[in-house]
Amino acid sequence: MNRSGTIHAGGDLLSPGSAVRLNASFCRDCDRWEFPARTYCPTCDQEPTTGPLSPTAEVIGHSAVLHQPPGSLIDAPYPVALASFPEGVAVLGVVEDAEVGEVAIGDQVETVARLVGDSIEYAFRSRRSS
């Protein structure tokens, strides 16, 4: 179960490692996507529709978490990417199959399900290794 609502159709059938798509909202009037999905469009305040983002995104920024942050259920060190989806929204995520220093601007990543505690959340996986 994807308790955060970040995964499109994030029901009980999700399993860690499977490809998933992020759940976003889209305002037709503004031609604008928002992630996570919102109940209002931040540009026009109208009610958007919801739908999935594309399965892959391009890395436009990256860093890493080298020391265990309080509350994180992911073991540091781990790389993090800011990845831009074709819909025009850029999302932060842990790149679960890469080592620190291996992520580069221009890399393609896909969104996958990852077990975080007892919830299924999203992570990025480098397309080079898939």
């Binding site: 308790r3 955060s4 259920l73 781990y78 932060l92 995520g93 505690g117 919830s119 959340e121």
Partner: peptide, 18 residues
């Protein structure tokens, strides 16, 4: 949000690093 923290994304220096 809780899921950001648990997913390893709830750390302010990340934003400054980017």
């Amino acid at each position: 949000e809780g899921w950001q923290i648990e997913s390893g994304l709830g750390i302010t220096p990340l934003y400054f690093a980017l």
